[in-house]
Write a protein that binds this DNA or RNA. Structure first.
Lengths: 221, 221
DNA sequence: TAGATTGTTAATCGATTAACAATC
DNA sequence: TAGATTGTTAATCGATTAACAATC
């Protein structure tokens, strides 16, 4: 049955800063909706969206309501429409341009790991101090250059996100250069705190830390 | 100058559950202390520990006080002593035994990535549906077996933590088998929610999700 | 209309930070 | 003793969950 679209659009550019916790859940919703769309589902309720993700339905409604009124009382959300909204909000409906710096074991795996870069993301290039060895490791069509060529290769090209997987000692100086080149966000796999100017976002992923903290739970019988 | 050790040991087996957020910070403290110890620092204050980690000194004191009284008012904490306590609390003073299941691009990178497994951790084995190809990718001395041999290889051996990097469709059934084998914690790189019995801990790391949520911050000028 | 589900406000929960007496 | 810093309580902040009037 056809329903007319809900009255969304209350506040496209939200004035209050959106909680970080909400931002992290948005791609989760988008992914679930992608699945539902593939299954030809027309509509979904906040409860149906929340349950498989292990979340609360009120949380889903609250997260979404921060960006506008996307649902219809008594009905739910239109799968396709909501997915489109989320991709617009996340910016993944446009091309998101990514570079990787540091193609050692971890970095080169990220280059070849299908499932890291989802629809909307483009890996422009990788950089490493030993691009030949890195190319062998990565086995990818993404060009890998020497880190010295960072400026030569990227000046004048828009780079949205840099993925950082260099040795600890190199992290800050590479960061400074990336910021200088206009990078707006960094996904940092290096176990080091990065100093960045306001407006540049850094997300820390410390794989070793995750393992070490899990160790806490496996003690005794 | 010699100081007598502080009066720790108030509550070694804490009755109240420790906040997850605290558990995640403990390895951070341990790592900072390791550095300080290497620099021959004798003592450290909560403020000195907090600042480089971007934390609040009260938070450091509160986290530590959950496990006992490790400090000395007017003095601070003894680096070596506190580090030892933290390693004991985390269980990284004993051998922590890890297996990896799924040695594709990401999994095999984790096998070779020095810096993933810190002191105290032992990677017993990797498992993959194509162990030969995985071995080529991983270039490591860690043995890689076929996943079918999970039970044959691990029955009767203690496994503390499993690192999961299999395809989505295989995640739950592999999880069930790992739980059956007595695994107590899972570091899950698969973008899927895992059902586990109470007492088994799952930590989710979704690299693609991190990238997608960063996309939110790089919009407009 | 009756049933369902939204958007939103209020209540709850948990975590962070400030403040300070205790104490080395 | 004077100065410094802990452990801990109280205040603050933020996020989650419950509840429900609005509404399709």
């Amino acid at each position: 049955m056809e329903k007319r679209p809900p009255t969304w659009g209350k506040e496209y550019a939200p004035h209050r800063p959106i909680p970080e916790a909400t931002i992290k859940r948005l791609p989760l919703y988008a992914r679930a909706l992608q699945l539902l769309e593939a299954q030809r589902a027309e509509k979904v309720s906040s409860a149906e969206l929340a349950r498989p993700l292990g979340l609360n339905s009120a949380q889903v409604r609250k997260d979404l309501a921060l960006f506008g009124q996307f649902g219809t009382p008594g009905f739910g959300y239109q799968v396709t429409g909501l997915r489109r909204e989320l991709r617009r909000i996340l910016g993944t409906d446009r091309e998101v341009r990514v570079v990787l710096v540091g193609a050692g074991n971890l970095g080169s795996a990220l280059l070849s790991y299908r499932g890291f870069l989802k629809q909307g993301f483009t890996m422009l290039a990788g950089f490493d101090v030993d691009p030949e060895a890195a190319a062998v490791r990565a086995r990818t069509s993404v060009p890998i250059h020497h880190v010295d060529a960072l400026e030569d290769r990227l000046t004048g090209r828009r780079v949205d996100i840099a993925v950082l997987a260099v040795p600890v000692d190199a992290a800050q100086s590479i960061t400074d250069r990336l910021v200088e080149l206009g990078v707006r966000a960094i996904l940092n796999f290096v176990p080091a705190r990065l100093a960045v100017p306001p407006g540049v976002h850094v997300r820390y992923v410390d794989l070793s830390l995750e393992l070490e903290s899990l160790s806490y739970y496996v003690q005794d019988g």
